[in-house]
Design a protein around this nucleic acid. Sequence first.
DNA 1: AAATGATTTTCACTCTGTGAAAATATAGGG
DNA 2: CCCTATATTTTCACAGAGTGAAAATCATTT
Lengths: 262, 262
Amino acid sequence: MLEDGRYRVNVLDRAITVLKAFDSNHRSLTLSEIAVRANLHVSTCLRLLSTLTRHGLIRRDQDNGRYSLGYEILALAEIARGSSGLAEWARPAMRELCQAFDETVVLSIRNGDYRIDLDQEIGQQNVRRVLSLGEAKPLYAGAASQVLMSGLTDSEIDDYLSRIPLIKLAENTITDPQELRQILARIRREGFAESFQQQSDQGGAGIAAGIFDARRQMVGAIGVSVPQYRFTPTLRSKLIPVVMAAANKISLVLGGRGRMIA
Amino acid sequence: MLEDGRYRVNVLDRAITVLKAFDSNHRSLTLSEIAVRANLHVSTCLRLLSTLTRHGLIRRDQDNGRYSLGYEILALAEIARGSSGLAEWARPAMRELCQAFDETVVLSIRNGDYRIDLDQEIGQQNVRRVLSLGEAKPLYAGAASQVLMSGLTDSEIDDYLSRIPLIKLAENTITDPQELRQILARIRREGFAESFQQQSDQGGAGIAAGIFDARRQMVGAIGVSVPQYRFTPTLRSKLIPVVMAAANKISLVLGGRGRMIA
DNA sequence: AAATGATTTTCACTCTGTGAAAATATAGGG
DNA sequence: CCCTATATTTTCACAGAGTGAAAATCATTT
């Protein structure tokens, strides 16, 4: 089996660095800004940008000559999102769940050591949680993350914990491996995870539950994400059964048996 | 000013061809399938895939070894979508409009000679229109397309029509340039466009209106897209003012004056 | 087991990407 | 308006990077 990163193509590495020079705080950049951020010579950058532009991965503003990511990336993203199939099937349940509480609902999957948020349905309240889709987030912090982690085998969990240090990301991040193991066991037993300011200090909280396919494999997690101040005991106890029900509903659609609600 | 495509980097061209080998009918591919579709030698493909995988633009299924587009593309797409800023500001109005009729609402922009659908809010009815975001669609067919085209200057329209042949895409596609010019004039006058089976034979219909910025430039279009059989005269006449109002609302948020409703 | 087909590795050659430097365009100040 | 400073675009000779044929390995089927 091909070891990851055995082969590498220099130019391609560089071109991808150029694409990644853009982020949510730098949505448009000038040539020289890109050169600095990607740590490349301007000539090289220009050549790469020119090629990327021809394929629509980069676009250039006619007025000010600044570069941004091109719309072809949106087309690719639709295909990427659809390739797991999950997002499509989960959508109706996400809708329902979002409308029930008017809070943000998120669909996540595990990709290696990370959680990826595939899709979200955003509540309409003024203060709301909005997550950035696609970004890789650690598996040890946050309700959805821990649900996904609880779907790993025990040896996979051991392996993960031996490789990844548990860094304090927010007030209540679990940094003790032993404590995390206990939490994961509880999640498996009770069928849901909860978090309260574990991931970012912005003050988020939430409930999440696992989605299973016909082979009883966990293929994703659905969760409701709430601004911390709104996460009252009342809301919490209302959310738990509803989130679990939504997860089961999606599991059934996928041919899974879901998980019995206690 | 740099002529488009003056510079090109061979490997990068090839790598992008690899990415574009995936489409909605081929969401996962094997190495040799990719090699055939991208018209490259397997060795070359493998090298490119390996590099792309390391950066998360491609991922590989552990079980069957098949390749798909990676989740990093989702992250890039979020940035690309946000770079115009429009999607963010338009969201509340799109929501409202979607809920008013429970039909699919689409936000589009013009990118050169094409329309790009930036974002959509999908109605919940069983039969519904779902568009593929990001894909480049012609400017001459469909309500939103024609709105965007009506935002061009007359000379730009002349130029477009001299370059792009009007191909019959569906039953009612406008293929006569003169007729299209008249329609565009009407759209400018009345402030909305409508279409009935112009774009695909799947049977779509809709109403769309333009969004303007502070400089009175058209920066996008918002439209409601309906399965053809549901597009009754009653619905049509209800939609027109509401779609125009939504477009104006977004224009105002952007600092534009919007367009007076007659 | 053997055979077929796909994937991975290797390697010598050549073509391609490189980046310095010059030329041009753009912006800012006096 | 011209001069200066900065950013962008073009050019080019060289080195090193990508190429693809072929061999080796792995997977699947008969």
